[in-house]
Simulated scan of single mutants.
Amino acid sequence: MKPATARIVALRPAAAGPAVSQDELFASFYKRLYAGVPDAEKVFTSTQVRQRRLAWTPQSHYADGFPGMRDRIDAWERHALAMGRESVGAVLEGVDRDAVGTYVFVSCTGYAGPTPEMLLAEEFGLRRDLRRTFVGHMGCYAAFNGLKVALDALAARPEELAMVTCAEVCSVHLRPEVTKEQVVVNGLFGDAAATILLASAQEHRDGPVVMATHTETHGATAGAMTWRVMDDAFRMTLSPYVPLYLSEAIVPFVTRLLEPHGLRIGDIAHWGIHPGGPKIIDFVGDRLRLPETMLEPSRRILSSWGNCSSPTVLLILDHIMREVRPAQGEYGVLLAFGPGLTLESALIRF
Rank of each mutant, 00 (worst) to 15 (best):
residue 134 F to Y: 13
residue 219 G to W: 04
residue 113 G to S: 13
residue 256 R to A: 12
residue 28 S to Y: 04
residue 213 T to S: 10
residue 90 A to N: 07
residue 298 S to E: 09
residue 60 S to T: 03
residue 239 S to F: 05
residue 112 A to I: 07
residue 80 A to G: 11
residue 14 A to D: 01
residue 32 R to C: 00
residue 206 D to E: 15
residue 4 A to H: 02
residue 24 E to I: 03
residue 313 V to T: 15
residue 210 V to G: 04
residue 115 T to N: 10
residue 210 V to T: 01
residue 309 S to A: 15
residue 32 R to T: 13
residue 80 A to L: 08
residue 319 H to Q: 12
residue 239 S to W: 02
residue 97 R to A: 12
residue 65 G to S: 02
residue 204 H to E: 10
residue 66 F to Q: 01
residue 70 R to N: 11
residue 151 L to C: 07
residue 211 M to H: 08
residue 117 E to H: 11
residue 124 F to N: 13
residue 108 C to T: 11
residue 325 R to C: 13
residue 283 F to Y: 15
residue 56 W to P: 05
residue 41 E to C: 06
residue 324 V to A: 08
residue 284 V to F: 09
residue 157 R to E: 14
residue 37 V to H: 05
residue 48 Q to E: 14
residue 293 T to I: 00
residue 346 A to M: 15
residue 75 A to T: 13
residue 311 P to C: 08
residue 267 D to P: 07
residue 96 D to K: 06
residue 243 P to V: 11
residue 148 K to G: 03
residue 317 L to A: 11
residue 170 C to A: 02
residue 224 A to M: 12
residue 233 A to S: 14
residue 37 V to P: 02
residue 166 C to S: 01
residue 161 L to F: 10
residue 286 D to Y: 03
residue 266 G to Q: 15
residue 223 G to P: 08
residue 182 Q to K: 11
residue 75 A to M: 14
residue 91 V to M: 06
residue 48 Q to V: 06
residue 94 G to E: 10
residue 38 P to N: 11
residue 5 T to Y: 03
residue 280 I to M: 07
residue 286 D to G: 03
residue 154 L to C: 05
residue 248 E to W: 13
residue 68 G to L: 08
residue 19 A to N: 08
residue 299 R to Y: 14
residue 255 T to R: 14
residue 55 A to Y: 09
residue 311 P to A: 09
residue 283 F to T: 06
residue 290 L to Q: 02
residue 232 D to A: 12
residue 64 D to M: 00
residue 143 A to C: 06
residue 112 A to C: 12
residue 253 F to W: 10
residue 188 L to K: 07
residue 328 Q to I: 05
